[in-house]
Every structure is written in structure tokens, then in C-alpha cells.
């Protein structure tokens, strides 16, 4: 049996587990049966559409520019997603989109510059997707955290400004705390990998019949890239957002005022 081709029958077989989940929800009166069914159906439709589109993009005969176009769409979509998840953060759409572009540029330059992977549609799209997906969550977290820190501690920030500190100096302790909050979960998950869970890429490779050690090296490279991407994206958001809540003459803007 080929582990990478489960077929429609295999997919239907795995759906039995969704039926089990719905049954549990029903028996425990969780009232989540409909949500579970809707989520499963939606995931199926979305992924199928993506699968067929990717088949065209990743076709070895297709131009690699289709893959880059796919990345551009992912970056724009990530910008919208960040905005919808952190509406209270002023200017987050632009900052989020810039941050995703920086992440893609830096991480793919490293991957392809050091020839970790060849420049092909089948490498560009999934790698960029992983960098963007992980960075997106961290961006939302750090954006919200910076706004919370600087509005909750606005009296301290202004007391620092009143002592003659620049906006960079006055905001540093609070921005640093926000960046740490956003980065620690990624560091923790990097530490726990292999001990607590087997990450998706490695699991996929092993299922596809790749040697376990080869699968691990690929996974490690990806994890390092994700860590670097998350650090890059939160730093871009952190610096950009902080700059935005101060005036050029070192005054703290009202965060509410900056929201519109």
C-alpha cells in the first residue's frame, strides 16, 4: 500500500473519526455537532480547491512565476488576516503585510541562497506558507501586546519622555516585554519538538517513505527557518508599530487616536 495515496476510500475512512467526534458531542450534549460537520466540510472544500490549484502551480512543467504569484497572494491574505484578528492595532494591515514580505524575502533568500532546497514551485509555495503561517500568529500577538503595554503603561512612558528620553528609549522596556511574549511560545515549541510531538513536515515525509533521519534534517531546517521568521516578523511589527504611536518630536500619541 502506498502511504502517500490514500484515495477517496481512505479519505472516507478517516471521516469515521469525525463521526465519532460528532457522536461524542451529541452524547455529551456539547451542541458542537453542527460546527464539527461544518468545519470538516469547509476544510475539505478549501483544501480540495487548494490541492487542484497547487497541482497546476507545482507542475514541473509550469513556470516558477506561478509559485511566486501564489506567495504574493499568501502575503496579501496574511495581511488581511492579521488585520481582522488585531483590529485594535493602528495601521496593522500595512505593517503586517510589510512584515510578511520581509519574512518571505529573508527566509527564502537564506533557503535558496545556501541551496538548502532547490528553487522550484514545490519548494517555494509550502516553505513560504509555513513561514507566513507561523509568523502571522506571532504578529497578531505582538501587535496586541505592544498596544496593551503602551496604553496601560502610558504614564510610565510619558514619565520617561519627561526625563528627556527619546521615544526609542522610553518605549524599549515595554516593547521588549511584548517581543518576548510573542517569541517565547515559538522557542518553547522548538524545544519540545520530537519529545512531545512530531511536527507536520517530518510526519508527512515519513509517511511518504523518506528515511527518518533525512526527514529529521528537513524538519530541523524548517524549524530553524520558522524561528528566524517569527523573530524577524515580530521585530518588524514591533519597531514599525512603536514608531507609529510616537510623534517625530518624541511625544506619545493617544492609541485610540491612532486607530482611525
Amino acid at each position: 500500500m502506498n502511504a502517500t495515496h490514500i484515495g477517496w476510500a481512505g479519505l472516507l475512512g478517516s471521516f469515521v473519526l469525525v463521526v465519532v467526534a460528532i457522536g461524542l458531542s451529541f452524547s455529551q450534549r456539547l451542541q458542537l455537532s453542527r460546527s464539527m460537520l461544518w468545519a470538516s466540510a469547509r476544510a475539505a472544500v478549501q483544501l480540495m480547491l487548494v490541492g487542484f490549484a497547487l497541482r497546476l502551480v507545482l507542475d514541473p512543467k509550469a513556470s516558477v512565476w506561478w509559485a511566486w504569484l501564489w506567495v504574493v497572494v499568501m502575503v496579501a491574505f496574511a495581511g488581511f488576516t492579521i488585520r481582522s484578528r488585531a483590529k485594535e492595532v493602528p495601521g496593522i494591515f500595512l505593517l503586517g503585510t510589510i512584515s510578511m514580505l520581509v519574512v518571505v524575502a529573508v527566509s527564502l533568500s537564506v533557503i535558496f541562497g545556501f541551496r538548502v532546497f532547490p528553487i522550484e514551485g514545490r519548494t517555494i509555495v509550502p516553505l513560504a506558507g509555513m513561514m507566513i503561517g507561523n509568523s502571522m500568529t506571532a504578529c497578531v500577538l505582538v501587535g496586541r501586546r505592544i498596544v496593551d503595554e503602551l496604553s496601560e503603561k502610558s504614564d510610565e512612558v510619558e514619565a520617561r519622555l519627561a526625563l528627556g528620553q527619546s521615544w526609542q528609549e522610553a518605549s524599549r522596556p515595554y516593547v521588549r516585554s511584548a517581543l518576548r511574549t510573542a517569541l517565547v511560545p515559538q522557542i518553547e515549541s522548538t524545544k519540545a519538538v520530537g519529545l512531545v510531538f512530531l511536527p507536520g513536515a517530518m510526519t508527512g515525509l515519513v509517511l511518504a517513505g523518506v528515511d527518518a533521519v533525512d526527514a529529521v534534517t528537513v524538519q530541523l531546517a524548517i524549524m530553524y527557518l520558522i524561528l528566524g521568521s517569527v523573530a524577524t516578523s515580530v521585530t518588524v511589527i514591533g519597531l514599525g508599530l512603536t514608531r507609529q504611536v510616537f510623534t517625530s518630536d518624541h511625544r506619545l500619541r493617544s492609541i485610540e487616536r491612532a486607530t482611525h
Partner: peptide
């Protein structure tokens, strides 16, 4: 403004 703020506490 930083120099001013050090002069006018």
C-alpha cells in the same frame, strides 16, 4: 524636545 525636557522637569 529631549534637551528641553531635561531643562524643564
Amino acid at each position: 524636545p529631549r534637551a528641553l525636557r531635561r531643562n524643564v522637569g
